[in-house]
């Protein structure tokens, strides 16, 4: 959705364009630099990196960190679980929230407000850690893949986002279909879904990344380690030093310190975890840039 040719370019408009490009370039430096830095550290020899001072380029180049990480079977297993979780979690959540969003935006549906409030309350009130855990135990969901996606299919927030988008779709479209005798579910998948692609792509990214990045529930529910995700492996490495907080014996701390994953390994895993998202993102973002032309459908 760039400036259409038919809008006149003014002088101040040109100044803005230049300033805008400069601003964006500056912004890019701030957001990209940290990544370059992590990559540089991940390509550096381990002990040498402790001395700091690595910014854009490794000082003592080494691929040993990536070799070490990629030799680890847990990483492969974790990646498979992460992919499985993200795919199932995203598909179910996108469909679920789109359906819910459609339902609560149907103007003539009497239960609209009831459903909205029913879900809004859940946004603010929750039982907390222990009741949630006991519920999953009671449902037998501990140590399963289901525990990752089932409790997060619907969410009040995504419901609202979907609804706010669906509201912009002309109601007449649905009415016409209803007159033709289409069921509500059919209207949903034949009209609502295809017409909401940009919003669905956006929610898919939010939900998908949420699943890919989450570690909290994995720490709680993957007790046997079977369903450990890639992110949780990284999380543990990054937060390993927290285990020292209860130690008081100095020799014990010394030994624990020795077992802490080197900085460079942590950097390598960070890169490995983020890479898939960077690769996949453009496939979704094309739905934003294409732009939807509602007019075409209206006719």
């Amino acid at each position: 959705m760039s400036r259409p040719f038919y809008i006149k370019q003014t002088k101040s408009g040109k100044v803005f364009d230049v300033a805008n490009v400069i601003l964006m370039l500056m912004f890019m430096v701030i957001v990209v630099y940290p990544f370059i830095n992590i990559i540089a550290i991940s390509l550096n020899e381990g002990t040498d990196a402790v001395r700091g001072g690595i910014y854009l380029w490794p000082r003592k180049f080494s691929l040993a960190n990536y070799k070490y990480v990629l030799n680890n079977d847990d990483i492969y297993k974790g990646t498979m679980v992460s992919i499985l979780r993200t795919v199932i979690g995203t598909v179910t959540a996108v469909l679920g929230n789109a359906l819910l969003g459609y339902i609560v935006s149907c103007r003539q549906f009497a239960g609209r407000k009831f459903m909205r409030i029913l879900f809004l309350i859940t946004m603010y009130f929750g039982g907390g850690l222990i009741p949630g855990y006991l519920l999953m135990t009671a449902l037998g969901l501990v140590d399963t893949l289901t525990v990752y996606w089932l409790p997060s299919i619907f969410s009040a927030y995504y419901m609202l986002l979907c609804a706010s988008y669906v509201q912009n779709i002309p109601e007449a479209l649905f009415e016409a279909a209803r007159v033709d005798g289409a069921s509500e579910f059919r209207i949903f998948y034949q009209f609502v879904l295809p017409l909401s692609k940009p919003m669905l792509a956006c929610i898919a990214i939010y939900v998908g990344v949420g699943h890919w990045n989450s570690w909290f529930d994995v720490n709680l529910y993957s007790k046997s380690g079977t369903w450990d995700t890639l992110q949780v492996i990284l999380y543990r490495m990054l937060n390993q030093a927290n285990a020292l907080k209860d130690m008081t014996d100095s020799t014990m701390i010394a030994e624990a310190m020795r077992g802490i994953q080197p900085l460079t390994i942590r950097a390598a895993i960070t890169i490995i975890v983020v890479l898939p998202i960077i690769v996949i993102y453009p496939f979704f973002s094309k739905y934003f840039t294409q732009g939807m032309t509602l007019g075409a459908v209206k006719q």
Binding site: I130, Y133, V142, F216, K223, S224, G225, R236, A243
Partner: peptide
């Protein structure tokens, strides 16, 4: 041997609440 991967105390509280723990627990505060 099973290892706690998150916070130890939190895991122990949950274990106690759900009754899900083994014969022996080490490193208990």
């Amino acid at each position: 041997v099973e290892h706690v991967s998150g916070d130890g105390t939190e895991a122990l509280n949950l274990a106690l609440a759900s009754g899900d723990y083994p014969d022996v627990i080490t490193y208990v505060p």
